[in-house]
């Protein structure tokens, strides 16, 4: 095995899969990792192979013993998100040179921003204020969920749980709700018999939810948004198709 990877050398299917597997396992040298990461940007076959290995191996991360983070860690993350959201929230009329660059880069990225409304951008920015106002002495159990379309083609929402009983649902894209329909938010822990409704959700709007009538949030808890009638599901379970789905990762 060579220690260097030619940036543009073509790889056969097995070579691609070997390289992806070693990259995900973590056995490659710094130089080869760097080469793989550059190659990922334009090699769709390698990207697919990497995601296949990531998906297969991810459950085995549980072999590492859990460690409780200090509350300080989440406060740092909150502060950083607070600062990170600034440029995106700025309207195009208010441009400094650096904002101009970022804004135009995002705006020009048509596949990313097609259909993304200003409302949702501003709603994401609203997180900064919400996080800043959140109590800082909360317990250290924190969760992050990225809700994707069922085919994993696009992230639609992020759930950020500032405690095991409080969570924020923040849109990162838009979703066109057909007339007469509504998005309903559900959650289910591994040992619950069925999902529990957390209510209807307005597309493009952030929402803060209390789970005080539910058991505390736990690792791997399922969250999903389904398309229901305008008044919500008539039953105590989802009746419409899943639009976005994801599982909680404990910090």
């Amino acid at each position: 095995m060579t220690d260097h990877l030619e940036p543009l050398s073509p790889l056969g299917p097995d070579e691609t899969d070997d390289l992806a597997g070693e990259y995900v396992l973590g056995t490659l040298s710094a130089e080869r990792r760097d080469a793989v990461e550059h190659r990922l940007a334009h090699d769709a076959a390698l990207r697919t192979a990497v995601w296949s290995w990531e998906s297969r191996l991810q459950p085995y991360t549980a072999l590492a013993e859990p460690v409780e983070p200090t509350p300080h860690l989440w406060q740092r993350i909150e502060r950083s998100l607070d600062h990170q959201d600034g440029p995106v929230s700025t309207l195009p009329a208010d441009r400094s040179p650096s904002r101009n660059t970022l804004w135009e880069r995002l705006w020009d990225s048509v596949t990313v921003w097609r259909g993304v409304s200003f409302a949702s951008v501003l709603a994401v920015a609203g997180l900064a204020a919400m996080l800043a106002l959140a109590p800082s002495s909360a317990p250290s159990s924190r969760y992050l969920v990225v809700l994707m379309t069922p085919q994993h083609t696009q992230a639609g929402w992020v759930v950020e749980a500032s405690s095991s009983q409080q969570l924020s649902l923040i849109p990162v894209g838009t979703f066109e709700v057909p007339p007469g329909k509504a998005l309903e938010f559900w959650t289910k822990a591994d040992d619950w018999s069925g999902p529990v409704s957390l209510g209807l959700v307005q597309p493009g709007e952030s929402q803060q939810l209390s789970l005080k009538n539910l058991p505390p949030l736990e690792d791997n808890q399922l969250f999903e948004l389904t398309l229901e009638d305008a008044t919500g599901s008539p039953l105590d379970r989802p009746t419409g198709p899943i639009q976005f789905i994801g599982r909680a990762v404990e910090l």
Binding site: W51, Q58, V145
Partner: peptide, 8 residues
């Protein structure tokens, strides 16, 4: 389009 689940 090549991303796994959100958790992955």
């Amino acid at each position: 389009a090549q991303r796994g689940s959100g958790k992955t």
